[in-house]
Design a protein around this nucleic acid. Sequence first.
DNA 1: AGCGTATTAGACAAGTTTGACTAGAGCGGC
DNA 2: GCCGCTCTAGTCAAACTTGTCTAATACGCT
Lengths: 203, 203
Amino acid sequence: MMILGLVRWMQPVHGYDVRRELLSWNADRWANVQPGSIYHALRKLTQEGLLREVATEQVGARPARTTYEITAKGEDEFETLLRGLWWRLHEPQDPFAAAFSFLPALPRDEASAALRNRANQLRAGVEWMRSSLNSDWLRTTKPVHVAWMFELWTDRAEVEIAWCERIAGRIDEGLPYLPEGLDKAQGWTAWEERLPERGSTLE
Amino acid sequence: MMILGLVRWMQPVHGYDVRRELLSWNADRWANVQPGSIYHALRKLTQEGLLREVATEQVGARPARTTYEITAKGEDEFETLLRGLWWRLHEPQDPFAAAFSFLPALPRDEASAALRNRANQLRAGVEWMRSSLNSDWLRTTKPVHVAWMFELWTDRAEVEIAWCERIAGRIDEGLPYLPEGLDKAQGWTAWEERLPERGSTLE
DNA sequence: AGCGTATTAGACAAGTTTGACTAGAGCGGC
DNA sequence: GCCGCTCTAGTCAAACTTGTCTAATACGCT
C-alpha cells in the first residue's frame, strides 16, 4: 500500500492532503490509487493498527477532517512492503499488451497506423518529460530521484517508439501472422485475418 | 474486457477453456484477469447482451458447463474497445515506480543492492524470452505477433537493466537526494534519509 | 485393487476500487 | 452586491476482483 508510505512522510495528514499529493504526482495513472480509494484505505489501515487517528478538527461548516499518523507497527509493515516491491520483480500490467495480442482482429493498415500513432504519442510524452527535466521547477524543488524516474520512463518510451515503427513496418510488408503449415488447420480459423473489405459483418 | 476478445475467437467456449487459455498466456500477470474473475465476467457480458449462452451440457456428474458465443452487439463492442486500446495511450501501472518514489526510505546500500538485483532478475527474464524466441515451439505453433510481443518485452527490459545499473552507481556515489537549498527546510524533514545505523527503530 | 493426486467446472463470500454525489466556503468579475 | 465557479473534505452504493472451496472423475503407480 502506497497510502501507508505517503502518510509516513506527510504525518500528520488528513485524507484530502494525501489525495492532492497523489494527484500532483499523477499517481492515479501509474499506481492503482484513485481518489475514491483513499478514505477506505485509511480506515482499513487504522483498523489494522498501522495508522492512528490523531485529531478530528472541523473548520467552519465544512466536512470534518480526520488526521492520521503512522504507528510503530505501521512503520514496520511499510518496510516489509517496500522491501517486497524493491526486491521482487512484479511485472507491470500493460493494457496495450492485451490489445496487441488481438492484432489479427484489426485490418493491417489500421494496425500499422495505430502503431505509428502510438509512437507519436510516446514521442510527445518524452518531449514533455525532457522539458520537465530541464525546468528549474523540477531541478530545484523536487528530490533528485523524481528526475531519475523520468529517465526510466523516457528510456522505456524511446525503445517502445522504435519497436512501434519496426512492427508497423513488418505489418505493412504483409508478413503472414500465422506460421507456415498451421495456416488454417488446428482451429485457428477464427483467428482469420480481418480483410480490408468492410461492411459485411457490420450490423 | 479481454475476456470478450477471447470468446470471440474461441467460439464457442465455456469458462474453463477461457481460463486455461489465459493461464497458458500467463495473462494473469500482465492483464488484470485472475481465474476467479472469468465466470463473473462471462455472466455480466451475457447479461449485457454481448455474449449469448449456447448450450449447457453436462459430462457425467461434473459441474455443468455453459458454452458461450459472441453476439453481433458484442462484436461491435469488442471493436470499439479494441480500438480504444490501440489508439489511445494508457500508461501501464508499475508497482516498482511506486516503490521507487520512496527511495529515500531505504538505506543507500540496500537501495543500490536491490537495483542490481532487479537488473539480474530482468536479465533472467530476457534470457528466458530469448530462448523461447529460438525454440521451435514458439516459431511453429504460435502466431508471429507473440514473438513480436516478446521483442518489446526484451527491449524494455534491456533498457531497464541499464537504468538500474546507472542509478545504482549514482546512489553509491552518494549524490544527495534533495536539491541544494531545500535541504531540510520546507517540511521535507520527514523525507530524511535513512542513515546506515540500524537497530534503533527496529522493535 | 487400492491409494493419492491432478483435472474439471464452477460457486461464492469477502475484500477492493471506482465514479458520482454532497454541500458549504471562498473568490473573482461585472 | 450577487452570480457562478472552483475548492474543500469526504460519503456511498455499485461494480469489480480475488482467493478459496467443492465434489466428482480420471489417472498413474505399486
